Computed example of a mutant assay.
Amino acid sequence: MAVFHIGLIINPLAGLGGPAGFKGSDGMADEALALGIEPKAALRTRVALECLLELRDRLQFVTYPGAMGADLLAEMGFSYRLPAGLDADAAHALTTADDTRKAVELLQDANVALILFAGGDGTARDVSAAAREGQPVLGIPAGVKIQSGVYAISPRAAGELTRRLVEGGLVRLARGEVRDIDEAALRGGKVAARWYGELTVPEEGGFVQQVKQGGVESEELVLSDLAAWLEDTWETDVRYVFGPGSTLHGLAGNLGLNTTLLGVDVIENGAVLAADVNEMQLYELIAEHPVRLLVTAIGGQGHILGRGNQQLSPRVVRAIGLDNLRVVATKRKLATLQGRALLVDSGDIALDEAFPDVVKVWAGYREELLYPVEHG
């Protein structure tokens, strides 16, 4: 079974200002500690991680030394490692915003599927300053004030949602606002919040829309919505490779394109450039061109590469780039997997192992889900 890699960052000073009556912790940690206030961020993170204890064999955390993550993970018996180039000597008692930002950068370099971070709005600001576009993050609420929409409603909710992701449940990607109150103004009696950006956050992704009756997803409506999204985002002079399968064939039909059900087709500028191509033809067509590759999962089985689409050879996939691969699947199709991961079996072990722990799945109009991937 594949190991799932999750990043963990704890701001050990988060929440200190509340019990001290400081209306926040920014710049006030020393004063709060001097009053004898005990840090609570690790305790709240523990509550979240307790939801994952039964999955310890499937998880490896990537974290920062000491109180920023490693101490708690070791105490709870989780497998973890520090990012490359960092050792335990990097830990120090009073952490700073720079530590959080550096941690986010290093965890992203380690290709973690999700970054869990514990803190408050100040911590969210620091995460936002370093997070790359599209990097999934989820906050464990541990601060005095939580204005930002990037936090779970409770530590346990953060743990349960992470568990759902690891177990292959439907998890949708959304945009969460990062907001923070000006604490200096607040101490002066004035409440003023500022918008600092947005982060990509997971949320529960069950059947909440596109229904006809009885809560059952309508395949026809979803394919129509997916076609509308793709049509809205067509890139000029980019070649779109459509893999085999009824999902992509139906998507193309909604775009007015006549593609092959079991073949691979190349579309450019809204028209079919080449239909039912073999591997050699496909490789020639993608050479020296920007390309997007759309694949779907085999229903009930879950393969996205290596079954029924051998035209998408390792050299083709490498030439296109994994960053340009998009998985398209309805929630009904994903549900047939019953929580099992998507599978890649390209015949090239190095390529298979280069796949991330989770991929983004297009599942509706501007709706992306996170879903686990395993390789053979």
Rank of each mutant, 00 (worst) to 15 (best):
M1S: 14
A2E: 11
V3C: 08
H5S: 10
H5W: 01
I9R: 08
P19W: 06
M28E: 14
A29H: 03
L33D: 01
A34D: 12
P39M: 02
L49V: 09
L49Y: 08
E50I: 01
E50P: 00
C51N: 08
L55C: 06
D57L: 03
R58L: 14
T63F: 07
M68W: 08
G69Q: 07
A70Q: 13
D71M: 05
L72E: 10
E75P: 04
G77M: 11
G77C: 13
S79I: 00
G85W: 06
A93C: 01
T95G: 07
A97C: 01
E105L: 11
L107C: 04
Q108R: 02
A110D: 15
L114V: 10
I115T: 14
V127G: 04
V127F: 08
S128F: 00
S128N: 15
S128M: 13
A131P: 09
G134I: 13
P141Y: 12
I146H: 06
I146K: 03
G149S: 05
L170T: 04
V171T: 12
A185L: 15
L186F: 03
G189A: 09
W195K: 06
W195F: 15
T200S: 15
E204I: 06
G206M: 09
F207C: 10
Q209M: 03
Q210G: 09
Q210R: 11
K212Y: 00
Q213C: 05
G215D: 08
S218L: 12
A228P: 01
A228W: 02
D237R: 12
V238M: 03
P244I: 03
P244M: 01
T247W: 01
T247H: 02
H249E: 12
A252D: 09
T260W: 01
G263K: 10
G270N: 10
A271K: 14
V272K: 08
V272T: 06
L282H: 06
G300E: 08
G302W: 05
L305A: 05
R307N: 06
G308N: 05
N309G: 09
L325Q: 02
A329H: 04
S346A: 11
D352C: 03
D352M: 10
W362I: 12
A363N: 10
E368H: 09
L370H: 04
